[in-house]
Amino acid sequence: MQTALILIALAALILGAMAWRIHKQAKLYEVGFGRQLVNTLSSRSFQLTLAGFVIFVGLWYVTVSLLKLPWFNRLPGPVEVVSEWLSPAPVFGISIYTKDYYTHIFYSTYRATAAFLLATLLGIPFGLLMGWNKKFYDYSLPLVELIRPIPPLAWVPLAILVLPGSEPAVIFVTFLVAFFVTTLNTLLGVESIDENYFRAAKCLGASNKDILFDVVVPGALPYIFTGLQISMGASWFSLVAGEMIAAQYGLGFLIWDSYSVIAYPVIFIGMATLGIIGWASSALVRVVGRRLMAWREAELSGSARVEV
């Protein structure tokens, strides 16, 4: 009963999201919802997407469950994983019905979000300053270039030594990676701005402060948002690495712990959950970016073009 309810809720969520998307497209192409639905379902790209999923799950099923190939014989098949994931009484204690599952998700999401926000808050001004001020650029770029290649895991011992407890240490390590990505993309964004926009602004009487807010920030925004998407992804992968080493909760910890206690289906549940959350968080950044850069959307969609 409960399973059915949750499955229905999940299905409603997915169908709702799809319907919303088709609705948007229908408006863009100026056709009815039904027509667009048929167009989407019969479109080559939708069919290929579907085929991709089917092939992936099919290969998993064939290699693991059906043929039980030697290298794969210790792995759970798709049926085992999904039934454990959706089971009200999971064998290994983790499914969508257990509180622990959400505790792990909560911890990971909280850490990734905190690190991402901190990196955004510090990285964007830092990158703008580097692009804006030659002196500051000369001070900081060589340092950034030297520190940036140090892998996040190499920071873990130092972070634990300096920061109180493992929690801030994990967040710090996650933050570090996201920070460099955001900073360097922001810098790249400022450098990408055509010199003539600065000249035009000066001709029109803009002060340096005006130029910062009217040229530098909007001009760098496309690169900044590309950077934020990468930074979001980077947050997740360095977070999981950090959690495997220094945490008691979180999806990274869950995956590593499940390996140690031979709860193999849980590894897959953890990985799939990370995939879904990581994708959703990047999509969120993309949506915010689109809202802030209406001018780019207008430019890219040919339908809005005006002619003499």
């Binding site: 055509d194 003539n196 926009y197 000249r199 035009a200 602004a201 001709c203 029109l204 009487g205 803009a206 002060s207 005006d210 009217d214 040229v215 909007p218 001009g219 925004l221 850069m293 001018w295 780019r296 430019e299």
Partner: peptide, 29 residues
């Protein structure tokens, strides 16, 4: 300065501002 304004070869309207925002930029700023 705004006593001698340049119009550029490849154009330098701010792509992130609407036509109206571009045109009013000088007097407003």
């Amino acid at each position: 300065g705004s006593d001698r304004v340049v119009v550029f070869q490849h154009g330098a309207l701010f792509p992130w501002k609407t036509v109206l925002e571009n045109v009013t930029y000088g007097p407003v700023v």
